[in-house]
Design a protein around this nucleic acid. Structure first.
Lengths: 185, 185
DNA sequence: GCGTAAATTGGATAGTGTTTAATATTTATA
DNA sequence: TATAAATATTAAACACTATCCAATTTACGC
């Protein structure tokens, strides 16, 4: 409940204006309670951002189910689609940096890693069987590629440079790499 | 002077712990003075981040000059090299989001755009003459690609996934796209 | 030296994350 | 059921933050 409401607050005001006090107030609690539950501001943000990851993964799984034959397109457009529809929450994932001494709780790593797993599976399926061992590394690289395009889309860099179809551009890069891997091994 | 010291403070403590008061104190001024000069916190951050862009562009130009024949490699490694050597300042560029009503002052857009110009020129030089009109769009896409890899490098995503050479991975993607553009037009 | 303009100050305001001692509530035990 | 122990919740205090602005100091041309 705290996380759900915290997530809503993040989606409404964004990372810069986010406030733990405000989250507590929204549920009718006090800041102290929230601190007894989460222990620190960072842990609250981790919980909220992990929720965003889970919603994102669901969104992409649904996009794959409803996207027809072209699963790579569904994947890329699902990535962009969620980010665009959930600007503030999506950006908060990358706005929040853990302190150097802090390590992410393993269960959060697991939940967040599912998104990568989905992509690895699709990349593997798009490669000939003989080269499927290369799928994880290629998948990571393609996620980074799409992520870069998505970031520049949402932060206005692409608009500034006159680019009107960032998602299409990202999809071109991904297809290119898959064809290349297919042809050259 | 304010900007130089502000940039140093950002490099030392990072976006999350950055404080305008602290910057003023470092020069022996008061917070009020800083506000009279910059008008707002956002404008101070814009100035600091533009300085980072300028230093970054210089760094990459030097990497190109000293990088020998393989200019594309020099470009990608220059991108990563600066980001890794200036973590906090580099990340602050993307941590700071302008308020929706706010527009970037044109002279800052100009200065920041020079980095893109450098990349466009190198991409154009790497393409056959007949296809150089495609250079700007391809260059933007490749910058986004490298940016995504660099982001995942610095935020630990790649380390978490077991990727040990993010810069090499990014370079592979860039080469791939250039070869593809060269072969297919 | 004088007067105007610019630069600088520091306090006030309203917010933030964080901690803590006290209080209230729930749960479990005898 | 009555009491003791554990848990949850609170409010206040602390040390910060950005932001604003009236008052003061400094600088400079005449």
């Amino acid at each position: 409940m705290l996380i759900v409401e915290g997530h809503k607050h993040m989606a409404e005001v964004g990372f810069a204006r986010f406030s733990a006090r405000e989250v507590a107030k929204r549920i009718g609690y006090t800041i102290g309670t929230l601190y007894n539950v989460f222990g620190s501001y960072d842990r609250l943000l981790i919980a909220i951002n992990t929720r965003t990851f889970v919603l994102w993964t669901d969104y992409i799984r649904k996009a794959l189910d409803d996207g027809g034959e072209d699963r790579i397109r569904a994947l890329v457009e699902g990535y962009f689609g969620f980010a665009r529809a959930n600007r503030n929450a999506w950006m908060a994932i990358y706005d929040h940096h853990l302190p150097p001494d802090f390590t992410m709780p393993p269960e959060h790593d697991m939940l967040r890693g599912e998104l990568t797993d989905v992509v690895v599976a699709e990349v593997a399926a798009a490669l000939p069987e003989a080269f499927r061992d290369q799928a994880p590394r290629l998948a990571r690289s393609l996620v980074a590629t799409v992520h870069g395009h998505c970031t520049f889309d949402l932060n206005g860099s692409f608009a500034l440079m006159g680019e009107r179809d960032p998602a299409g551009l990202a999809l071109s890069r991904v297809r290119e790499s898959l064809v290349n891997a297919l042809e050259r091994g």
